[in-house]
Design a protein around this nucleic acid. Sequence first.
DNA 1: AACTTCATCAACCGCGGAGCT
DNA 2: TAGCTCCGCGGTTGATGAAGT
Length: 293
Amino acid sequence: MRKPSPATATASASGTPASAASSSKTPCCTKVGLKRGPWTPEEDELLADYIKREGEGRWRTLPKRAGLLRCGKSCRLRWMNYLRPSVKRGQIAPDEEDLILRLHRLLGNRWSLIAGRIPGRTDNEIKNYWNTHLSKKLISQGIDPRTHKPLNPNPSSSSPQQEPIHARPPPPQPSAPKLPNPNLESAGHGDGEENNWQNSDGLMMGSHGNSNDDENMDYCTDDVFSSFFNSLINEDLFVNQQQQQLQQPHVPTDPGSLGYGVIWEAALTSSATTGFNNEDEHKRLLDHANKRF
DNA sequence: AACTTCATCAACCGCGGAGCT
DNA sequence: TAGCTCCGCGGTTGATGAAGT
């Protein structure tokens, strides 16, 4: 908002020497002669026109085909975060902020997942908003923005059960499984929002085209999963679950060892509202959740 | 007015997963 | 199966303007 459109000259081009580092993984970005830094209106027009004509995808070769001196990554980023027609610009509304907070409490720094549930918002935007606004806001409220737990828990309660059970551990957590990324709405197929339905919470649900990924999930449909997900978003239920978890004696003491499986497991274990009452059902739903996230 | 510090956010970087050969 | 390429993600950087001194 502050910078309506970065149409300024390329200038210093963020001059990190890293760009010169040899990396066979991203050769397109190391080629000399490619432009970097802020996009000009002319470049924006070239990119937008091309994608309107030819569609998204094939990012690596897109710049050449579109007549741009950019790497594919840069083009993709510009399109996804700025040029896409569905991108909503402007202030994050209070209800969006509330949704981000709740989703982050559930998902951690899974920005693309969070963005996929908030129409018109990009992962980059949400990530920035979190880092500049929400994390500070939580800290000012005495809440750890990573765990959503009080920063200074009552020292008298020495119980390790106060440790977060649902929050994602900090990035370098080798034991936290990197869950498959379904990339449901945020990328890959344009404006996915059109195919989603929106519940009363403003949450984008459903519309995962690849619903045949688990034959064993016949009975556990996306609707069921969405309901389950919704139930997790629900504030009251979540608080309930936390309270129940705190009473469970077997809660691991090392939050760093917690993966999302534990999160879902804990939610499932404590959630009587989902209607899954035996272990098999729990396991199946958990598998489904892990596939989704 | 000049300078410094802070806040914001677009863009870059490196990594890992998926798909293909 | 191994190697390669492409894509997408999350973390980080740096340019810019605002606010403070």
